[in-house]
Design a protein around this nucleic acid. Structure first.
Length: 612
DNA sequence: ATAGGGTTAG
């Protein structure tokens, strides 16, 4: 190992520590007084500083920053490990902007970070989704004569996962295993988390099972812990595989690992999301019986679940209960409840809570505004949504892409195409970049407001700018073209999917099938239905419904019945659209009454699905 | 002194 170089400078070379607005867009700066100004013990805060009021770690971090500033000015420099401790504290609080300033300050006095310090920097880049810079740091680590270890690679794997480079993460893992590195439980946890967050919980589960069963194909010390299991359980639950999650939960406890509030939360949230509020509540009580104290996050899951069920008053009661238990509500809880009122179209109550937040000293954040703006938009009150937007700007809240996407949706819904276009062009003025959702909203908005030309033109501009539209964005235009009867243009765009390296989804096919059906080209619709299966894209209930609706409207009842049989064969659960088609079919021709027998077989399956 | 977990808004 190479020892770190300390070149010392006089204490006066170090500047007072001035923190700039951090990554999270905090509104002001704080100044930590340097020794030679006022010898105060407390860091001075300018009142505008928002995050610090709510951030419990803020004082710890501020103390660390002050100590760091002091240490840089000492005549006898403390050991590098002391700097590392402070770097580690700030890194843990995710105050990356401050962390970079610390590294800058160190560089100013020629104090090179050592092995640990470089890993803190590496991990920081990975968290910021700048894994390329992370690799550069690794290059620096090697250049300095250090050897990367499993910590180095775990950080890189996380960075790759965060940038959605799952394939690269996996091949890096394979490579280091080949080099003889031994991934540990944190490495596996990182990978499992990465897989789950990118919608690959099933892959994570397979990996888990292979490791557990010893069939993974390489030498492995499998020693899962609570956090590892929590990642997996949460990932499975988020993909709706709650029963698998429960199994893993039991497997974990079977290994003597007791669940904590997070592990329980994963399951409770999973159950709530699939609408199994009863079992979610039971689990909540079970958790409390075991002496595990629910916290704000747990309560938020339940409050959100109640809100989504339309039981906002009960949700509000639960919030009171939480407060009585001594948990301090945070902005997320309030935002959830405000959203609940909005969902119920109780915009007055939503506004009241929004106002009372400020009056009672609870910090609002940009999401509070976004939620309420969405509420107004959903109620068709886009003017009030826009005034709220202006109000948030006046109050120095920085809008996000979500703010714009919400407003754009609201404006298009009210047919205010010009306003929407204007708002869209203003996005860049806020240092924001539209995302794929913005593009979809624009395309969809143009199409639904009879501005097909604008939609086509916008799409072309996007492509010319080098942007690669994703399939969801293409679907918007595709749907617009189909609904406008421009089947030739739609077919052309559909035909370009592979050239654009996009895979049509079941939804894409449904759009095209619907287009052909409405255009009276039933055969083409049917061929597309057959084609999608050949290409490995499984139709879903909506695809069946679309095609059946086409045949039904075309009075081809036999074909509808054939498709109904096919659905039943494949254990599809029919929905209300399916039901409407069947009803239509029967009203057209009583002789199809005999096919009613299909319905009980469906509903049995539906029941089975629900109770499983 | 460096790597891994849960909640809201489109």
């Amino acid at each position: 190992m190479v020892s770190s170089t300390y070149a010392r400078r006089t204490a006066s070379a170090a500047k007072p520590f001035i923190l700039r607005p951090s990554e999270r867009g905090e509104l002001s700066t704080i100044i930590i007084r340097s020794q030679n100004s006022i010898p105060s013990t407390q860091p001075q805060q300018i009142p505008l500083q928002k995050s610090l009021k709510t951030d419990q770690n803020a004082s710890v971090v501020n103390d660390a920053l002050k100590a760091f500033d002091d240490m840089l000015q000492l005549q006898t420099q403390p050991p590098i490990s002391s700097f590392n401790t402070l770097l580690g504290t700030v890194a843990k609080s995710k105050r990356y902007r401050d962390l970079f300033i610390m590294f800058d300050r160190m560089a100013e006095v020629d104090l090179l970070p050592d092995y640990i310090g470089m890993h803190i920097l590496l991990n920081c880049y990975c968290d910021l989704k700048r894994v390329g810079l992370g690799f550069a740091v690794v290059g620096g680590i090697i250049k300095r004569g250090y050897k990367p270890n499993i910590v180095t690679f775990t950080s890189l794997i996380k960075g790759l996962c965060l940038e959605d480079k799952l394939g690269d993460a996996l091949s890096l893992l394979r490579k280091i295993i080949g080099f003889g590195f031994r991934p540990n439980v944190k490495t596996w946890g990182t990978l499992v988390n990465g897989l789950c967050r990118s919608g690959n919980a099933k892959v994570a589960l397979r990996l888990h099972e292979e490791m557990r069963n010893g069939t993974v194909g390489f030498d492995l010390k499998f020693d899962p812990n609570l956090i590892y299991y929590s990642c997996l359980i949460d990932g499975l639950c988020k993909e709706g595989l709650v029963e698998k999650g429960k199994e893993l939960f039991l497997e974990m406890e079977g290994r003597g690992i007791s669940a904590d509030v997070v592990a329980y939360g994963a399951l409770i949230n999973g159950l709530c999301r699939i609408g199994d509020w009863e079992r979610g509540r039971d689990l909540f009580f079970q958790m409390m019986d075991r002496g595990i104290r629910p916290n704000v996050v747990t309560f938020n899951m339940l409050i959100d679940a109640l809100c989504k069920e339309g039981k906002t008053d009960e949700a509000s009661g639960l919030l009171d209960f939480m407060i009585r238990r001594g948990e301090k509500p945070d902005s997320i809880i309030f935002n959830t409840l405000i959203d609940g009122y909005c969902l119920e179209r109780r915009i007055g109550d939503a506004r009241k809570l929004f106002v009372s937040m400020r009056d009672e000293g609870h910090e609002r954040d940009v999401a509070s505004y976004n939620v309420l703006i969405n509420g107004y938009c959903k109620c068709g009150r886009s003017d009030e949504a826009m005034s709220l937007f202006k109000e948030m700007l006046c109050n120095k809240y920085k809008p996000t892409v979500i703010t714009f996407n919400t407003l754009l949706t609201g404006l298009f819904q009210k047919g205010k195409v010009k306003d929407a276009q204007e708002l869209y062009s203003s996005i860049k003025d806020y240092d924001l970049t539209p995302d794929s959702a913005t593009y979809s909203i624009l395309l969809d908005g143009f199409c639904k407001n009879d501005c097909l030309e604008e939609a086509i033109e916008f799409f072309q501009t996007l492509e010319k700018s080098g942007y690669k539209p994703n399939s969801l964005t293409c679907n918007c235009l595709l749907d617009g073209l189909c609904k406008a009867g421009k089947l030739d243009l739609a077919s052309e765009l559909f035909g370009r999917f592979s050239e654009m390296e996009l895979a049509p989804s079941a939804y894409t096919y449904s759009i095209m099938i619907n287009g052909f059906c409405k255009g009276g080209q039933l055969e083409k619709a049917n061929n597309l239905f057959l084609e999608m299966e050949k290409k490995g894209c499984a139709p879903d209930v909506a695809t069946f419904n679309t095609l059946m609706r086409g045949f039904c409207d075309n009075n081809d009842a036999d074909k509808v019945v054939e498709l109904l049989h096919l659905m039943a064969e494949r254990s599809f659960v029919p929905d209300s659209y399916t039901a409407a088609i069947v009803v239509d079919l029967l009203s057209k021709d009583q002789s199809y009454l005999k096919y009613l027998e299909l319905i009980p077989s469906f509903s049995d399956k539906g029941e089975e699905m629900r109770t499983r």
